[in-house]
Write a protein that binds this DNA or RNA. Sequence first.
DNA 1: TAGATTGTTAATCGATTAACAATC
DNA 2: TAGATTGTTAATCGATTAACAATC
Lengths: 218, 218
Amino acid sequence: MHKYGNISAPVIKRLPRYYRFLGELIDKDVTRISSRELSDKMGLTASQIRQDLNCFGGFGQQGYGYSVQGLYNEIGHILGLNHMYRAVLIGAGNLGKAVAMHMSFEKRGFRLIGIFDNDPHKIGTIIRNIEVTDLDKLEEFCRDHKTDVAIFCVPKAAVPGIAERLYHLGIKNYWNFSHYDLSVCYDDIIVENVHLNDSLMILCYKISDANDVPEEKE
Amino acid sequence: MHKYGNISAPVIKRLPRYYRFLGELIDKDVTRISSRELSDKMGLTASQIRQDLNCFGGFGQQGYGYSVQGLYNEIGHILGLNHMYRAVLIGAGNLGKAVAMHMSFEKRGFRLIGIFDNDPHKIGTIIRNIEVTDLDKLEEFCRDHKTDVAIFCVPKAAVPGIAERLYHLGIKNYWNFSHYDLSVCYDDIIVENVHLNDSLMILCYKISDANDVPEEKE
DNA sequence: TAGATTGTTAATCGATTAACAATC
DNA sequence: TAGATTGTTAATCGATTAACAATC
């Protein structure tokens, strides 16, 4: 069962960007905007914006355009930001700590309710008002606290084992920062990957390709 | 001038993933693989793999398949990992620190040569053997040290000003973790974005869409 | 040689853009 | 009413898949 039919990945990927630009327009006290104006600002075509929005409904008004605040609210609702999914963070290393400290979970439909690690030096420390708990107590914690999502900030090798435990606990939604490909293991899970290494390599490709310098590593 | 013609974005995005899977095969002492076998492992079609690779050259052998190590090396070369682009990190907060500590820059074609911040509490601290420098000394530093890339780990509001300074210094390659859209400002720059908030919202969409629960925030 | 698998061309599928009638 | 801009259908473009001759 899908709330909005079968929306294509490219469309979904653009939604947060629309949301961001509309938020900026609100900050600038812009109340209405046409698909044309928005397309200029965002570097898209007006057609694409109208097509994208009409996957979810007719939010505009002929001859007028779109209400900025109205559209912002609609897209926030489509994205499901009104939800409050309970998330546990697995891994309190540099990356995990940064994710815990840096993200505005509450504005994005989530609440961080637990942080786990197996390093005795980290267990017991406090990150953003949450005590880092021993990974061994994961099952106990999830029995006591409804948990919807797990965030993976652990090394690749640790992922499969932890994923199996989570899957067994019925937690099947993952925000995955590890280099492990979760999607090839289970097929009834929801995964959103953040592969920082991949992103860095793509930057490397773009620079190399543009400069065409056959310079080698020294 | 482009080294490899005009390769489409979807193809480029898959390259790091190929690289990752081939690296794993090497670890498992697999020496040869057919497009068919690889496609099974990765959840792609064999056709797509062959099409992707043939954008860059014929790396296989009819009747045999591909040499795992050979293909790994070729893709590494295509990605430009043999380069050593000098990068400065702008922003030594939680996220910046995590990026500095967590990334294997040297394996991905980069070397981190400087870290900058404007917070007096951070200036002078050491992160991964690099002293955090006053952002005011950016121009001085870049005059003395050839710099190819800037990594943005600062709040949105700080980005446009710093981007202008970097652009003026001739630094036009950016790894952007901020929520600021650099691409709409300059058109002769290379940007690779890591928008963590967007990623989190996409996860929220996927979960909401799959569950179809009209549950509201409490 | 026979079998396997590539490189590559052709067919299909999907996403983006263009056009325009509907309508505010 | 006239002008503007949407929602939506049709046309184009690009990416993926299928097919197969080339060849190791």
